[in-house]
Design a protein around this nucleic acid. Structure first.
Lengths: 254, 254
DNA sequence: CGGTTTATTGAAAACCTTCAAAGGCGGTGG
DNA sequence: CCACCGCCTTTGAAGGTTTTCAATAAACCG
């Protein structure tokens, strides 16, 4: 288990033996969480950092009028709350979409490590920075594109992120989101999501059935929404030469 | 000058003498930058971290079709790119709105310090985390509210952020943004921004003239858009008891 | 298989954008 | 000091996108 974490971080930054030893000293808790369950709620004091090993989760906030806004999706290999664990109080919630296998790492353990292991700190920061770049792109997406293209953009992003962790076969991947989930993510009504999906299907760009999404024409879908993958920062030197992040597949059997 | 930086960070985290000495060893460059000028452009390799001492700047991205999306505003006391300086390549640009007084801190200097001064690192992370919380709230704002309320929310946020650094008097503050700037921030057309401002004026909530914005009724404006300031994390223990961040006023005379 | 959730569709209304024109404001130069 | 120019703002009208409401159909889940 610790091995999984070590490998993920090493794909960003070279670690020393001392760094690795410190990471091994962690006692992470493995959890199986049902679908539609909160990992943390707004107002909670973050005690643990959550790493998703399997399944999908999301970061969201509920407004006083009951409106929900989803601000991030988490796929296998993602830290949910690395970027907020320092804060005294959660200003949003994190919940599962599908059933998830997660790891909890105590907050103090992260703090101890970062206090003494600058390379680990840098690797963790890199993870957080990419998450933030994704968040910025979502703002661009919602602010600047109309419904069909917003959704197309989301599909392109998920395809690349899931490919990076080896969860895509033949341009298909699990898609447990309801149309209401997508609506709350994209600032749309669920009705409009339904219509947009119909449009994307009619254009022959996607196939979505039984919670599996297939991108029928990747290049055309990217062109349709003007997708530019640079914000995912997948092609950096530290990452290059690896088709797939190895630490994930090694975990699956556990 | 270094003093300014030290004090800002100390409002987040207690530093040791060694930490302070390391910060003093920095040789920051003070710059006066004209309005509407890029500090960094998309594709650049980030070499410096920019700190705004005076004026307003923004983080933005331009889509292939010429559409501009503004993703953050920077006010005095804000780091522009603390959260991206690790990345190999900028995936967006940062430019001034008004004339700005800025400080450039070399990237390697930050890296050296964070490698050896965990408390400084934590303080910098805190800054970055609050920036990200603001970004999340912008997503909520654009995704969930309609034009008038979006703009009202932005005004509430700016009021609090500028109050925290002592730049508000009688609920008034400099407002150098054009309506097109606001439009590109909120994912609206400039025409709609104009109409929304008319509405907010008609409701007696704001007064905006000659690039000065006055909030006429703070509580009602907050109620109008359902503003919840918790995401700014201004009331945390480390911050409490200080009406104003002292390090900014000490810089103004320089 | 029955009940519940999720997805689809139509029609009307709300919101926002686009286009176009006019008015205001500030700065510059005569 | 005034006239002019450019940029920014305001307003109207038409059109497009999206939401809302409501009803039906399909998929999912014990």
């Amino acid at each position: 288990m610790q091995d999984a974490l070590t490998r993920k971080l090493e794909s960003f930054e070279e670690l020393t033996d001392a760094d690795r030893a410190a990471l091994r000293a962690l006692v992470p808790r493995l959890r199986q969480v049902p679908a539609r369950t909160d990992l943390i709620q707004e107002g909670d004091k973050p005690e643990n950092v959550h790493l998703i090993l399997d399944g999908y989760a999301c970061r969201y906030k509920v407004l006083p009028d009951g409106q929900r806004q989803i601000m991030a999706f988490f796929v296998p290999g993602d830290f949910c709350d690395l970027n907020v664990f320092i804060l005294d109080q959660m200003d949003h919630a994190i919940g599962t979409i599908s059933p998830c296998k997660t790891v909890e790492i105590p907050r103090h353990a992260i703090e101890d490590i970062t206090a003494h292991h600058p390379r680990v700190t840098r690797a963790l920061m890199w993870c957080a920075l990419v998450d933030e770049a994704v968040l910025r792109e979502w703002l661009v997406n919602i602010g600047g594109r109309q419904a069909d293209q917003r959704i197309a953009h989301l599909f392109c992003e998920l395809l690349l992120r899931l490919e990076a962790v080896g969860r895509v076969t033949d341009n298909s991947f699990p898609f447990p989101f309801t149309q209401t989930d997508i609506a709350d993510t994209m600032g749309l009504s669920d009705v409009q999501v339904s219509r947009s999906l119909r449009e994307l299907r009619a254009l022959g760009l996607i196939h979505l059935k039984r919670r599996v999404l297939t991108i029928l024409d990747v290049e055309q879908l990217k062109a349709y929404c003007g997708f530019n993958p640079n914000y995912l920062h997948l092609r950096n030197a530290r990452w290059s030469g690896r088709r797939q992040v190895p630490w994930l597949s090694s975990v699956r059997g556990e």
